[in-house]
Amino acid sequence: MKLNFRTLGSGDPLIIMHGVFGSSDNWQTLGKVFSESFKVYLVDLRNHGNSPHSDTFNYDVMVEDVAELMNDQGITKANFLGHSMGGKVAMHFATQHSHMVDRLVVVDIAPKHYPPHHQQIFKGFHSVDLANLKNRKEADEQMAEVISNFGVRQFILKNLDRRKDGSFGWKLNLEVIESAVENVGEGLEGEVSFAGKTIFIAGGKSDYINSSDKELIQKYFPSSQIVTVDGAGHWVHAEKPQQLSDLVLDFLLP
């Protein structure tokens, strides 16, 4: 699949991948920071953002989408940064195509299985009456009935798209993502590993990475380190952008 992406800056390639329900827009601000040192590729993964939709949604196909992008762009080796689902894509990519990965940054996700836990987010999507929607403010008011957190609503509503005929729809492929959400939680399996330098960056207030995950992380990524950003939840890049950018640049730059 030909993924939608945008580039910023010049230098060695850094491919950035967002989490589920997200898009390349989520990393625009930090992408500009990183573009002072790298050629940054901000990617919309399949069924997200402005990338094509497909009924097939799992890590194997998402990995091959990224490999196709690299081949199309003439990139033989890149640094990778992935958050949440994007971090899982990056981990799978690194263990399957290790020769194409220089250094790996994984933000607030471990290589383990996560049970489905996005039910409230899906309720938020379904709470919006797209057929009769007049504006974004109305969408936010409808969603507030089921999701009280303003930041979470704004994150979800980044997917709201106004069509040429004035109607509203979702940019992402909500139906397929919801039906395949079990695949999003899949962990690494088997005797695979990536020996390259890797950093896992955990949110101090998040429960996605905990102390019991260290052994599993070391199994798959023997040259890895785990760093915690105090005061950050799961969306580390949105809550503590300066701390995250400092960690990433200290890790990636010689």
Rank of each mutant, 00 (worst) to 15 (best):
F57I: 06
V66C: 03
I147M: 09
D129T: 02
N135M: 03
F125T: 03
V105Y: 00
T76M: 14
L157Q: 04
T95Q: 08
E182S: 13
M100W: 12
S98T: 02
E145L: 07
P116C: 08
M70S: 09
F168R: 01
H117S: 13
Q119I: 08
L104E: 01
D165K: 00
S167K: 05
Q96N: 15
E68N: 13
S179W: 02
L104P: 00
L81Y: 05
F93G: 02
V128G: 00
A139H: 07
V128C: 02
Q73W: 07
R103L: 00
H126T: 06
V89E: 07
G124I: 10
L172E: 01
F57V: 09
D55F: 01
S98G: 08
S148L: 13
K164G: 03
Y114W: 04
G74I: 05
A131G: 06
V176H: 10
G185W: 01
V105W: 04
I156P: 09
N183V: 08
E138S: 11
V101L: 06
Y59Q: 12
L69Q: 02
S51M: 05
F122K: 03
V181G: 04
T56F: 09
G74D: 06
D161W: 13
V181M: 14
P115N: 12
A144V: 05
G185M: 06
E138K: 08
I121G: 07
Q154F: 08
K134C: 03
E178C: 09
L172D: 01
P115Y: 10
V181K: 14
H117K: 14
V106L: 03
M91P: 04
